[in-house]
Design a protein around this nucleic acid. Structure first.
Length: 433
DNA sequence: AGTATAGATACGTAGGGGTC
DNA sequence: GACCCCTACGTATCTATACT
């Protein structure tokens, strides 16, 4: 199978086998890391049977040169270069994550390939993760080594002239296998219409009893979300006490509240990255109408971090001094709650400055020159370059942006003020914005 | 069916506090 | 000061579900 070809297997997680609703990371049912996949897919399969198929396939490699889609100089192939993918990631100069995801989306769409297949086969990630990555790629310099890995893989995949063919073949094989299963189960008198398709629906094989052990998914209602958002505006880092109060008020588990804050902070931060980039360079996911921020507002209600623009972002940045950079040092120490909204140190202009300039400043890991091994960004078209290579002179935001920010800040102050009044729990006198 | 979203969680790490 | 442990947070990702 291609699972092997791509160095992928879908091992049944022991925990899952036991029916323990184990989380992914520890025992990822997902696509085993296709580490070798990149290598093999690029190297070992050059002459594979797939190459002769798929006449309708739109090749990847040839249009790399075409305009803005150009992704850049090829990465060295892991196998050939003797580098593992991790080494490549570590050595890789800045890649243009937006250009890469854009290209990948293009290729997948053009060839009618799904995110699930691509994710599991090429990236070793699940569909949801792929969707997220493609829709909201973080700028390279904001990614950890682990976070960069999928982008390196995508880049390698784009470089592979047979990548699409291989994937399409995978698709066919999957379909075949599905049909086979379907047929056999039909002959057994069962139906597979449960919708389990594909090789990785391991859970589907769990017994009903095991399935029942699954925790029911928590779906927060609009009022609950609203309340949490308000609480966030008041205290992005709530104390355990606040969390408990919130939980009991909303009739939620404290862990759910904690998770919500966790996710909300994280996602807001991510939105901010993108927003910053757009503000600074105008290139990014937004350019093709896929801007997360835009999407957020599009959805109106804006959930994930939708709040981003509509409610949460500016105060986050201005009031809390939570920057785009790692602000842990600034916010961490004590019980965040108090000082985070107290503003104080977090708000130091120097820090904000550092935050903004850190974006693409010379000091950032964007490392202008990189290693020069296979520079992508530099080789990328001018449009893509701007996404991460913001001139050191600073993110020269346009005035419109600043006005907007001020407005939002004022707005949020207003909200916070009202919240203070309502809550009148903590002394807001120290709050600074 | 494929994609997007959001709650949940594993893992890594920074910083504080205690002990030696 | 070095070491260890603990806590809290960020990141990346998963899974289930909602949406298109």
């Amino acid at each position: 199978m291609y699972s092997n070809l791509y160095g992928l297997s879908h091992p049944v997680c022991p925990a899952q086998a036991e029916g323990t609703p184990k989380t992914s990371a520890s025992c990822s049912p997902a696509p085993e890391s296709p580490l070798s996949s990149a290598e093999e897919s690029v190297n070992g399969l050059a002459g594979d049977p797939l190459a002769s198929q798929s006449s309708s396939i739109k090749p990847l490699s040839e249009d790399h040169s075409g305009g803005e889609s150009q992704i850049g100089t090829p990465l060295p192939v892991p196998g050939h270069s003797g580098l593992s993918i991790q080494e490549m990631v570590a050595m890789s100069p800045e890649l243009d994550t937006y250009a890469i995801t854009k290209k990948v989306k293009e290729v997948l769409t053009d060839n009618n390939l799904g995110q699930r297949l691509f994710g599991e086969t090429i990236l070793g990630l699940t569909q949801g993760s792929v969707s997220d990555l493609l829709a909201r790629p973080k700028p390279w310099h904001k990614l950890s080594l682990k976070g960069r890995e999928p982008f390196v893989r995508m880049q390698l995949w784009l470089q592979d002239p047979h990548s699409v063919e291989k994937l399409m073949d995978m698709k066919r094989l999957e379909k075949k296998a599905y049909m086979k299963r379907r047929l056999s189960s039909l002959s057994d008198g069962h139906s597979v219409d449960g919708g389990l398709v594909g090789p990785d629906y391991i859970q589907g094989s769990q017994s009903p009893g095991q399935q029942q052990l699954k925790k029911p998914r928590v779906v927060l209602g609009p009022e609950e979300k609203e309340a949490l958002k308000k609480a966030y505006q008041q205290k992005p880092y709530p104390s355990p006490k606040t969390i408990e109060e919130l939980a009991s008020q909303l009739n939620l588990k404290t862990s759910t509240v904690i998770n919500w804050f966790h996710n909300y902070r994280s996602r807001i931060r991510r939105e901010l990255f993108i927003e910053e980039i757009q503000a600074a360079g105008g290139v990014g996911p937004g350019n093709e109408g896929g801007s997360p921020s835009l999407r957020g507002s599009k959805s109106g209600e804006g959930d994930s971090c939708d709040g981003t623009e509509s409610e949460g972002t500016v105060e986050t940045r201005q009031g809390l001094g939570i920057g785009l950079e790692d602000h842990r040092g600034a916010c961490k120490d004590h019980d965040m709650e108090a000082e985070s909204e107290a503003g104080g140190s977090n708000n130091s202009p120097a820090e904000l400055d550092c935050i903004t300039s850190g974006f693409a400043g010379p000091g950032s890991s964007c490392g202008q020159g990189g290693l020069g091994l296979f520079s992508l960004t530099e080789a990328s078209s001018s449009s893509s370059a701007s996404s991460t290579n913001i001139p050191p002179s600073g993110p020269a935001r346009n005035p419109r942006d600043n006005n907007l920010r001020k407005k939002k800040a004022a707005n949020l102050n207003n909200i916070i003020h009202r919240l203070e009044k309502a809550a009148s729990k903590e002394d807001p006198s120290e709050w600074e914005f």
